[in-house]
C-alpha cells in the first residue's frame, strides 16, 4: 500500500507485452528528456553500463510466456556488442559494471539503487501514458545523490540502464493467431519491449529515458538487436 508493486517496471512491461497498450506493427519509440540538461564537460563521456535486465520468452499457444535461457543468453551478448558499437559512434566510452563481493555492504547499496531505478523507471513509463497533473509537460526524475558512490567507484559520468523483454509465438501460438483471425478474435502474438535510462552520476538526475515497443524484430539475431539498440539510443543526448 505504501509502495504499490504495480508500478515496478517489470510489472508494467508485462502489461505492455500482454497487449494492453496496443501498438502498431512497426517499432515505436518515445523519448523523454530533461529540459535543462547540458552534457558534462568536453571529452568523451564515460558511461557505466548497469547490469542488463533482459528476458526472452516463447509465447505458448495458451498465451503463457515460457522463458528461454538460451535466447536470453544470446540476446545479452548481442546487446553488449550492439551497445559498444552504437556508443563508439557517439564519442563515448562504455564501462562495464563490476559487481561488488556477494553479501558485502556495497552489494546492498547497489541493490537498493537498482530497485529504486526499477521503481522510478516504472513510474516514468506509466506517466508517459497517463501523466500525473504534477508531471504534465515535465521530466524531472532522479535517483538522488546515492549514485555518487558509483561515479567515484567506476570513474564514470553517467549510468545506463537497459531492459529488454521479448517473446516469440510458438508454432501452436501462430496457429492460434490464424484461427483467431478466422473467427474474428484478436490473439496477441509476441511483442518486444525495450527501455533505456541515462542517469547523470553527478546528482542522480535521469536526464533521458526512452522505450520502444514493437511487434517486429527478433532479438535472437545480432542484426535485430543492433536495430533495436540504434532506435533505442537515437536521441541519446551525448
Amino acid at each position: 500500500m505504501l509502495m504499490p508493486p504495480s508500478f515496478r517496471l517489470g510489472t508494467l512491461v508485462t502489461l505492455v507485452l500482454a497487449g494492453l497498450i496496443a501498438t502498431a506493427g512497426c517499432a515505436q519509440t518515445s523519448v523523454l528528456r530533461k529540459a535543462d540538461f547540458a552534457p558534462q564537460a568536453p571529452g568523451p563521456a564515460r558511461v557505466l553500463l548497469m547490469p542488463l535486465d533482459v528476458e526472452l520468452s516463447e509465447l505458448t499457444a495458451g498465451g503463457m510466456l515460457e522463458p528461454r535461457a538460451d535466447w536470453t543468453d544470446q540476446a545479452k551478448t548481442h546487446v553488449r556488442v550492439a551497445l559498444a558499437a552504437a556508443l563508439q559512434g557517439k564519442h563515448t566510452a562504455l564501462i562495464s559494471y563490476s559487481p561488488p563481493a556477494r553479501d558485502s555492504e556495497q552489494a546492498k547499496v547497489d541493490q537498493q539503487l537498482l530497485m529504486l531505478h526499477d521503481l522510478v523507471a516504472g513510474t516514468i513509463l506509466l506517466n508517459s501514458f497517463v501523466a500525473l497533473p504534477t508531471k504534465k509537460g515535465r521530466f524531472d526524475w532522479s535517483l538522488g545523490e546515492g549514485v555518487k558512490q558509483l561515479q567515484e567507484r567506476a570513474n564514470a559520468d553517467y549510468a545506463l540502464f537497459i531492459l529488454f523483454r521479448d517473446s516469440y509465438a510458438s508454432g501452436g501460438r501462430v496457429a492460434l493467431m490464424v484461427a483467431g483471425a478466422l473467427v474474428g478474435a484478436i490473439v496477441p502474438g509476441g511483442r518486444q519491449f525495450g527501455s533505456a535510462s541515462l542517469v547523470d552520476l553527478r546528482g542522480g538526475d535521469i536526464v533521458w529515458f526512452n522505450h520502444l515497443s514493437s511487434e517486429a524484430g527478433d532479438l535472437r539475431t545480432p542484426e535485430a538487436v543492433r536495430t533495436a539498440i540504434e532506435s533505442l539510443l537515437t536521441e541519446l543526448p551525448l
Partner: peptide, 19 residues
C-alpha cells in the same frame, strides 16, 4: 492445459475483453 483454456475461450464467444 493453458493452450486448451484459450482454445475453449475461442469456442465460447470472443469478447472485447479478450486480452
Amino acid at each position: 492445459k493453458s493452450a486448451f483454456l484459450e482454445f475453449s475461450g475461442l469456442l465460447t464467444a470472443p469478447t472485447g475483453f479478450g486480452p
